[in-house]
Design a protein around this nucleic acid. Structure first.
Length: 423
DNA sequence: TCTGGGGTCCTAGGACCC
DNA sequence: TCTGGGGTCCTAGGACCC
């Protein structure tokens, strides 16, 4: 029997605040001439890569998030292609966060451009949900010059789905008790967690709308789709039903993995270049581990060939580490064991997981002077990078091509957007 | 169409232990 | 020879999200 989720004593009021066409809107703030034009953020028209965000004018031509840039260029030749500026987005995102914290202490940024706000019990302060949402909407515009949409519901799921329906620049409140009625006419794809594959599977069963799903027996969905099926049954009724959705708003959860990867603009089989990239990626991962004060026990290599076949190979260390050179040594071993010599490589990735947090004395005592020297050296390198930028220091500097190609590839390192409509 | 980068979660099989 | 049951850890791959 499934364990029941702890139900709050009274219905919650959750806001899901989603910024409209966030990256594009931020770019417009910096270059107002972009306004109302077809704009594609994510890279230049000929580059390898995908669309991070498209303006509404560009979407009219069929351009959408996650689409290859070259496809976007074909669909909409007159589009303006803009490189992303992660620093700008982070800065705006922080502003957004600050605005939201004036409404509730329970604010959780779910990504750079969306947040959940638990507004339960704030009626005396902010009025009923719709009034509070309109105030929020106005304050957001005043403070950040950006539009957002707000979905209001009794669960994270309902808030999230309703903000999508409210777009663009709208507010939608699903009154408690009306959840199932609201969801029933929507495509199953509107449920977060239902992607292309699950949609196809459901269609094969004749399930097209959330209402069709709601009519199914929980047990049948569980039999067919396992744990996920059961969660899906709950979601079709508007419940958060397990997993991340079932957590408190603003319960901060530690990261479970840290990774960096790189796609070459042109495939390569040059060993020195490939290993230099692995060194650089190992350094980036090591640096993040030290910042977070995490030690990783598992490192994983990702290798994607020209034909897009992808392999991952993991190795669990006897003792956790956060040192660049230790990460790199294991990664390089995995690479040498698994790379098909002379096969053209498209992408490399370095991934760290199985974290433990810092254990002050024990580890230091166990570490020899060698490790300590490495630690000192890395701390110094981190300080230099803080001062002069990420590319100022590399322990791979003796290796060819360590940094050379980075400057013109993936200048943004942008977070992406999903294939789904939205914004 | 020719497919980024950073994450989370789930499944399934094998090794190993009791 | 034909063969248990449960638990944990590790690895690989894949769906999904922004």
């Amino acid at each position: 029997m499934a364990v029941a989720a702890p139900m709050p004593a009274f219905p919650r009021t959750i806001f899901h605040v989603d910024m409209d066409a966030f990256f594009v809107s931020v770019e417009e703030l910096f270059d107002p001439s972009l306004k109302d034009k077809p704009v594609v953020v994510g890279g230049q028209r000929h580059e390898r890569g995908v669309v991070s965000a498209a303006s509404y004018a560009a979407r009219k031509f069929g351009v959408d998030s996650a689409m290859p840039l070259r496809t976007a260029a074909k669909l909409c030749p007159q589009a303006i292609f803009v490189d992303g500026h992660p620093d700008r987005y982070r800065e705006c995102s922080e502003k957004v966060h600050r605005v939201l914290t004036t409404f509730s202490p329970q604010v959780e940024m779910a990504s750079i451009d969306e947040a959940y706000v638990d507004m339960t019990g704030t009626a005396r302060l902010h009025g009923p949900p719709l009034k509070a949402a309109h105030t929020l909407h106005q304050r957001m515009k005043a403070e950040t010059s950006l539009n957002c949409s707000v979905g209001i519901g009794s669960s994270r799921l309902i808030a999230k789905v309703s903000s999508a329906q409210a777009k663009p620049n709208g507010v939608l409140w699903i009154v408690p008790g009306q959840e199932a009625k609201f969801l029933a006419p929507l495509d199953v794809r509107e449920i977060p967690g239902v992607g292309k594959v699950m949609e196809t599977n459901l269609h094969a069963l004749g399930i097209k709308k959330v209402g069709d799903l709601a009519r199914m027996e929980d047990s049948e969905l569980e039999d067919r789709f396992g744990k996920w099926g059961l969660a899906l049954a709950g979601k079709s009724r508007g419940e958060d039903a397990g997993g991340w959705f079932d957590t408190e708003v603003a319960a901060d959860i530690d990261a479970k993995s840290i990774s960096h990867e790189h796609t070459y603009n042109e495939d390569t089989a040059d060993t020195a270049q490939l290993e230099a990239t692995l060194m650089r990626l190992s350094e980036m991962v090591g640096r993040r581990l030290r910042e977070a004060k995490f030690y990783a026990r598992t490192v994983q290599l990702k290798l994607r060939y020209k034909d897009f076949t992808t392999v991952t190979r993991a190795h669990t260390l006897p003792a956790p580490t956060q040192l660049d050179n230790e990460i790199f040594e294991h990664i390089r071993t995995l690479f040498r064991k698994n790379w098909k010599q002379d096969a053209q490589v498209r992408l490399l990735g370095v991934h760290a997981s199985s974290f433990s947090s810092y254990q002050p004395d024990q580890l230091d005592l166990l570490e020899g002077p060698r490790q300590q020297r490495w630690k000192d050296a890395l701390a110094a390198a981190d300080r230099l990078r803080d001062k002069f930028g990420e590319s100022s220091v590399s322990l791979a500097s003796g290796m060819r091509g360590g940094f050379r190609e980075r400057t013109h590839e993936n200048p943004a390192g942008l977070p992406g957007k999903s294939k789904r409509k939205e914004d």
